[in-house]
Simulated scan of single mutants.
Amino acid sequence: MLSWWRALRAIAALNVCLWLAVLQFAPVSGVYAHLHLALSGVYVLVCAYRSIFPRVDLERLVVVDTHLSSIFLGRTAATIAEICFAFQLGLLVHQLAAHAGMPAVQKAAWAIPLFMVIAQAFCWHSVLTLNHITQAVESSLWAAGFSWMAILLGVIAFSSGGWVQAVALLGIVGAAGFVAYVLSVDVPMYCRRYREGRARGLVYMRLDEGARDAWHRRVHSGSWVAWKADALWLTPYFSVGVWASIAMVCVPGL
């Protein structure tokens, strides 16, 4: 458990250094690059914070028992960061479509973050009520957003060439991998937890009760058994996800 947490913190430090290196040395120019840089900066910092103070929202599980590990505080930061990342994804497709001269795809690109912004409402519902089924809905909406992204990137790849096509194809692979993971690991895990909660008679909280509970209650645990299942998604979230966010800064603008 401690080794995993140390690894998260090391990755967080690396990510901050990578973002600063891009800020200092990468040829960041144009509206797209500056927007990506700002959005990525938020995502990098929030992921670093969450790596230092890991938590599992519905279980109220924390590694460090401090107010900075507050479920409510962490979820608020995560919401902001995930919306930033979602807009980066839409911006990337918009950017590639602009290079390919495809205005219809540019417009369609903004549906990508829309899926993910709506997902935040379901996420908050699950966090406040302790109902895992809406967490499964949230993950499904992320999968839907990435699926739509893959479709649009496929259209771009089919109609372009050179580096634009290469980036689009790479994005398709990444999006398809994410969708496969979410539908095979995350959604089944949350559905299983929902069924287990129903079986033991779990009483769901009202939203106001859940808000107070999420602000104050924390279950401290350093047991790997308690963290193992969620470490499977937390680790790539704080590593591969952040690297993708930083990499989008470096995609050439117009």
Rank of each mutant, 00 (worst) to 15 (best):
I52E: 12
R6T: 00
G253F: 03
L130R: 15
S70K: 03
V173Y: 07
C191Q: 10
A21Y: 10
Q135Y: 08
A21K: 03
H220I: 10
L202G: 05
L2F: 09
M102F: 04
A98F: 08
E196R: 12
G101Y: 12
H34L: 10
P252C: 02
D230P: 01
L202Q: 15
D230V: 09
W243E: 05
L169W: 12
A109I: 08
A144T: 02
V173F: 12
A143Y: 01
K228A: 15
R60F: 12
H67Y: 14
H99T: 09
A109V: 09
L8F: 11
S221W: 05
C17P: 00
P54R: 08
Y181M: 08
L18H: 04
W110N: 07
F87G: 12
R200A: 03
C17E: 04
S126P: 06
Q165S: 13
A211K: 13
Q106P: 05
A214G: 10
W215P: 00
A78T: 09
L152I: 02
G145P: 07
R75K: 13
W4L: 08
V249P: 01
G161K: 11
L37M: 03
E138Q: 14
A176I: 15
R60A: 14
I156V: 15
Y190F: 15
S223C: 13
L153Y: 09
G162D: 04
R50P: 00
V249T: 12
R206H: 15
Y49V: 11
A48Y: 04
R198V: 13
D65E: 14
T76H: 05
I133P: 00
G30Y: 06
V155P: 00
V219N: 12
V56H: 09
A12L: 04
F122K: 05
V64M: 06
S245Q: 02
V117S: 02
V63M: 09
Q88G: 15
L89G: 14
G161L: 01
D208V: 14
W110T: 02
G74L: 06
I80K: 03
S139A: 15
R55C: 04
A166V: 09
V105P: 00
C84D: 06
A157M: 04
A26L: 06
A48F: 05
R206P: 08
F25W: 15
G154Y: 13
S29M: 03
A108M: 14
S139N: 12
Q165N: 05
F53K: 07
L152N: 06
R60E: 11
A176Y: 03
L202K: 15
P252N: 02
